[in-house]
Every structure is written in C-alpha cells, then in structure tokens.
Amino acid sequence: MESGPEAFAGAAFALFGAGLLLWTGVCVRTGAPVADGVGRAVGAVTALLFAVAFLGAGVWMLASL
C-alpha cells in the first residue's frame, strides 16, 4: 500500500529528469538559449546537473520498491 506514492513520485522524477535532459540537449545542439538572462554555458551546466539529479532520484525511488 505504501509503494503506490513512491512509485508515482519515482516515475514523475524520472520522467521530468529525462525530459529536462532531452530538452537541454536539443537546446545545446541547436544553439538556442537554455535559460533567459543566463550565459549558455552556465544555463546548460545547471540544467544538466538538475536533470541528472532528478533522473537519479527517480531511478533510486523506483529501484527501492
């Protein structure tokens, strides 16, 4: 019974992390800015760090079921 919310949270974190990773990759490849008002390198690195963190948290939650 307690694994339902954990599975939902893990899936949400993993999907958000994967989506952010994909979006950041597309922005970097096309040369589009990743965030407004921030340098390209800083925005890309920050987005990649958060994407990896969210993806890792989602995988960790799903693996602990």
Rank of each mutant, 00 (worst) to 15 (best):
F54M: 13
L49A: 13
M61Q: 07
R29C: 03
A32H: 11
R40L: 10
L20H: 03
G31Y: 08
P5M: 02
A47E: 03
R29F: 14
G56V: 00
M1V: 05
E6Y: 06
L55E: 08
L65V: 10
V28F: 12
G19W: 07
A18E: 02
A7S: 11
A57C: 06
A57K: 13
L55A: 13
G10Y: 02
E6S: 12
D36R: 03
G19H: 07
A47C: 13
A7F: 12
A14W: 14
R29Q: 07
A32D: 15
A44M: 03
F8V: 15
V59W: 02
L48I: 13
V45G: 00
A51S: 13
A32R: 15
L62A: 06
P33F: 01
F16T: 13
A12S: 12
L22S: 00
G17H: 03
R40I: 05
P33N: 02
G37W: 05
G4V: 15
L55I: 01
G19V: 15
W23N: 00
F13R: 10
G25W: 02
V52D: 04
G25Q: 06
T24G: 01
A44G: 15
W60Q: 05
L22Y: 01
F54I: 06
T30N: 11
T24P: 04
W23K: 10
W23Y: 10
L49V: 12
L55M: 08
G58E: 08
L20S: 00
V28I: 14
M61P: 00
A35Y: 14
A14N: 07
A32G: 06
L22Q: 01
W23T: 01
S3R: 06
A63S: 12
C27I: 00
G4N: 06
A12Q: 10
A7T: 15
A53F: 12
M1C: 09
F54E: 09
L20P: 04
T24L: 05
A57V: 07
A35I: 14
V28Q: 07
S64I: 02
A44I: 05
T30E: 12
L22A: 11
G39E: 10
G56N: 02
P33D: 06
R29D: 01
W60G: 00
V28L: 14
G37V: 00
L65S: 04
L62K: 03
V28H: 10
A7M: 14
G19Q: 08
C27D: 10
A12C: 12
E6A: 14
T30G: 04
G17K: 01
V52P: 05
L22K: 04
D36S: 12
L21Y: 08
A14H: 09
V52N: 01
V28A: 15
G17L: 03
V45R: 13
G10R: 04
V59C: 07
A11S: 14
R40K: 06
G37C: 05
D36Y: 00
A9E: 11
G58M: 14
A41G: 00
L15I: 15
L62E: 01
A51N: 05
W23A: 11
